[in-house]
Design a protein around this nucleic acid. Structure first.
Lengths: 141, 141
DNA sequence: AACCATTTTGTTATATTATAACGTAACTGA
DNA sequence: TCAGTTACGTTATAATATAACAAAATGGTT
């Protein structure tokens, strides 16, 4: 959290109280949470003013854009980043039993080797790289 | 398609007409399609009997379980597999401009190297490995 | 063929996830 | 303080996905 604060100060960004609330919920969870789980938690903590989905999604969008959290695509869920701001390509080992997620760095050994080292039994992998293909770069250029 | 037919014969699976229809739509598309796009296409081709979502999702589930198609998690979309049945871990380069998807094999050079070779400008990567962690394996006995 | 068990399909309703659109409030810098 | 911008709040609705149950088709057995 203090890292996040510093990072936003450096980048002249507004870590508003809403954004802080959402980040805190994710930091406390250590597990991926759906947007509506976060929403429910916000409303549980403060039942007086009921909050609607867009508020959560906007906070999540901000936190993702700054590399403070990640989206787990295969779960439609969000989790706090272990190395905030490093903007490195995050990689995840997700246990479908206990739902724990391990975030690995790009710099670690190849992911499947690492999984093996950890005694993690892989059964499905999702590898999706998004960007602009060569042809579209030409057209745009 | 003939590959799919053979594969199902070998495995004693029923490539029913619904499943074939859905697979054919995906094969013809060469691009990822959302479940509701597929649904719309089914209903366009045969407007007499209107089809509901579960039918499409079930066909997709079957085709995925047999490695005939893949789900693109970051798009909530589905695409036909280039190497049906190889059950290998598929990897994708997805152009967010033209929406074309390149499927790469596990055996190819490392994905980011390959992206570079193809002149593909990466801007976001999703790497999510699902399985059972060491601890849960122990508990399960 | 007639029967049963199983699998697949069809149907209805509803859950879950996400965003559009627009107005209000708060903050920032001049 | 004022104008411009950014963030928040609210309402409504879009997009994606599944539960639950009924009907039909299929495959194997008698």
């Amino acid at each position: 959290m203090s890292e996040a604060r510093q990072l936003c100060e450096t980048r002249k960004l507004r870590l508003t109280s809403r954004r802080r609330q959402v980040l805190e919920i994710l930091l406390a969870s250590h597990q991926p949470m759906g947007a509506y789980d976060i929403l429910a938690e916000l409303n549980r903590v403060n039942p007086s003013a009921i909050i609607a989905p867009p508020i959560v999604y906007r906070a999540l969008e901000f936190l993702m854009s700054e590399g403070l959290i990640h989206r787990i695509e295969s779960r439609n869920a969000f989790i706090s980043c272990v190395h905030p701001g490093h903007q490195c390509a995050a990689q995840f080992l997700i246990c479908r039993d206990c739902e724990q997620v391990a975030e690995l760095e790009d710099s670690d050994p190849p992911l499947l080797v690492e999984a093996d080292n950890l005694g993690f039994a892989v059964d499905h992998s999702v590898v999706e790289i998004t960007g602009i293909c060569a042809q579209c770069q030409k057209h745009a250029g």
